[in-house]
Amino acid sequence: MARKSHRRRKLKLPRVIWIFLLLFIAAIGVVGGQILSQRAQIADEARAQSEATAKQEAFISRLAPYAQELQQVYGVLPSITLAQAILESDWGTSTLAANYHNLFGIKGTDPATSRIMTTKEYQNDQWVTVHARFRVYASDQESMKDHALLLVNGTDWNANQYAAVLAAKDYVTAAKALQTAGYATDPDYPSKLIALIQQWHLAQYDGN
C-alpha cells in the first residue's frame, strides 16, 4: 500500500501582499534614514551653537579686564562698554571691527586715520544705507580707549554731550542716556544694550 505524503505545502501569499510588504519595508528604511539625518542635523546645530557661544564668551573675557581699567580712569561702566562693543561690532566680526579694530562705529574725518564704509542709519522713520568715514585703530584696546574719551570729551560741537552717560550709576540709565545724547540713530538702541547686558550678565564687571 502506497504511503501518503505528509509534506507541508508552502504558504503562498498573494502577489499584492508581497508588494505591500516590500513597500512597507522600504518606507521604514526611508523614515529611519530621515530620523538619522534629522538627528545629525540637530547635533551639528547644537555643536555650532556651542562653538558660537564659546567665541562670544571669549570675546567678553578678552575685553572685560580693560573695560574695568577704563572705568577706573574715565568712569564709563564696563557693562556699557562691552554691550556697545558687542552690538556695534557684531561680536568683533564686522568688517570695521575685524579689519580696523573699530568696535564702536566711531566716525572720523581725517583720511589718513579713517576709511569710508557702508553702514545703515535710521532716518525719517526708516533705515537707509549711507557711506560714512570711520576711524581706524591699531588694536581693540585703542578703540576702547577712544570710545571712553569720546564719552568724556564729547563732540566738537558739545563737550558735555555724554555727561549724562558718565553720571549714570546703572546700565539702564546709561543706555537711555546714550540714546538721548544721540550716540546712535537706532530707536531701539537702549533696549538692545540692556538686553545684551542682562543676557550675558555684563553688570558683574561694573564697580560699586
Rank of each mutant, 00 (worst) to 15 (best):
A168T: 09
A26I: 10
P78D: 03
N160Q: 14
S139R: 09
S191F: 09
A175W: 03
A43N: 12
E57T: 12
L87V: 09
T113A: 06
D186E: 08
V172P: 06
D206F: 06
D90A: 07
A112L: 09
H101Y: 10
N160I: 07
E69C: 07
E88K: 04
V73P: 02
T93S: 07
L11M: 14
A181R: 10
I19P: 01
V172W: 13
Q56R: 08
E121C: 04
R8V: 04
K176S: 08
A48G: 03
N153S: 08
V128I: 15
D156T: 15
H6V: 11
I86E: 00
T119V: 15
L196I: 11
V76W: 03
L63T: 03
Y205R: 06
L103A: 00
K176C: 06
N160R: 13
I60K: 00
S79K: 03
Q71T: 06
G75T: 07
K10W: 06
D188I: 05
P65K: 02
S191D: 15
N124K: 06
R39H: 11
T53N: 11
R3E: 14
S5L: 05
S89N: 01
V76C: 00
L151E: 11
S61R: 04
V172L: 12
Q179I: 00
G108W: 02
A167H: 03
E51M: 03
V16Y: 13
A83S: 14
G105P: 01
R8L: 02
A132D: 13
I42M: 15
S94C: 06
A181T: 11
A181P: 10
S191P: 04
M117A: 10
K107E: 04
Q71E: 12
L23V: 08
L21P: 02
I35R: 09
L149P: 12
A195E: 05
L21I: 12
M1G: 11
F20I: 10
I19E: 00
A48Q: 12
T53I: 13
N153E: 10
L70H: 10
L178G: 10
E88V: 01
D170G: 05
V31A: 15
A138I: 08
I17H: 09
M144V: 01
A43F: 03
V16A: 14
G33Y: 15
Y183P: 01
L96G: 05
V172F: 09
P111Q: 00
L151C: 14
K169W: 06
A112W: 11
P78Y: 11
P65C: 09
R135C: 03
Q72E: 15
Y100V: 10
A67E: 01
W18Q: 06
P14C: 03
Y205M: 07
A164I: 04
P78I: 02
V16R: 13
A163C: 12
H101A: 05
T119R: 14
A2N: 08
R39Q: 14
V172T: 13
L77F: 02
V128Q: 09
T173C: 04
E69L: 12
A164Y: 01
A203M: 03
V31Y: 13
S143I: 00
Q204S: 14
Q71C: 03
N124V: 05
F59K: 02
D206Q: 08
L151H: 10
G92H: 00
L103P: 01
Y183L: 04
G108P: 02
W127C: 04
Q72F: 09
I19L: 12
L151T: 09
G207Y: 10
K107T: 11
M1F: 05
G33W: 07
K107Y: 01
Q141G: 01
I42A: 14
A26R: 02
N99S: 12
P187E: 07
A175P: 07
